[in-house]
Design a protein around this nucleic acid. Structure first.
Lengths: 120, 120
DNA sequence: CAAAAGCGTAACGTGTCGGTTACGCTTCCT
DNA sequence: AGGAAGCGTAACCGACACGTTACGCTTTTG
């Protein structure tokens, strides 16, 4: 888990992961979107690879990277366990159903994005 | 977010957060549960404090640390956005907002009680 | 009031991180 | 073939993380 959390702790690597969420990309395509040198990006990719967050497949002289989200589950689970102190699970499940039902009733087609926050 | 993710990337700090999930603890109590030196723990606490994940209150010559989970929301949201396939995104974001708002209110309500201890 | 308890900080050594440039290995193209 | 394209790795360097011991400050205690 250290590796996964450490990988996410870097803004460049987070950006790479977001890029790969939409589509697989080659090392060169990824590097081109950053100002830092290509070897620097290459090593970021290595960190992500060793954390299991990306998978690379050889394609001729190119190397295609794809996102692998599975290792994030452990981290997500840990965060959940930390924030929901024992006994919250049922209530959370109930709330989940409630929210979905409420939103459906309200007929909200416009997606609001209220996740603004101050930096810690 | 870098600070929060970086804070979680260390096993000692994760353990500290888990300890504080159950009950507030003094710096000494926390340090006693680790093999490393007390100053080392003190600096881990500083990292957590600067990431906003713990709050410390002076109590005589002791210093009581309490868990603050709010900064984790941003990270959790990011993980969700990365993991969830495009369609689910806003709906789950809305759910998260709803859930965390509820929990935050519960926390702040407890924090406004100036009595001796926040119950474990 | 002096001694001890409780914490944080300073100073220091060492390992790792993240950037750079230089280089080497495959693979495609003509 | 032979040169260019595409990537990774090695070597190097400054900054930072994490551990240690030594120290100083505030608060309790005998």
């Amino acid at each position: 888990m250290d590796e996964v959390a450490g990988a996410i702790a870097d803004p460049v690597r987070r950006e790479i992961l977001l890029m790969l969420r939409d589509e697989p990309l080659t090392a060169g395509q990824i590097a081109d979107r950053f100002v830092i040198s290509r070897p620097a990006v290459s090593r970021h990719l290595r960190v992500l690879r060793e954390a299991g967050l990306v998978r690379d497949t050889a394609d001729g002289r190119r190397r295609v990277y794809t996102l692998v989200t599975a290792p994030l589950d452990e981290l997500t689970g840990w965060l959940g366990r930390l924030t929901r102190p024992a006994g919250w699970q049922h209530r959370l499940d109930a709330l989940e159903t409630e929210v979905y039902r409420t939103r459906r009733e309200r007929h909200t087609a416009a997606a609001q994005h209220p996740s603004q926050k101050e930096t810690a």
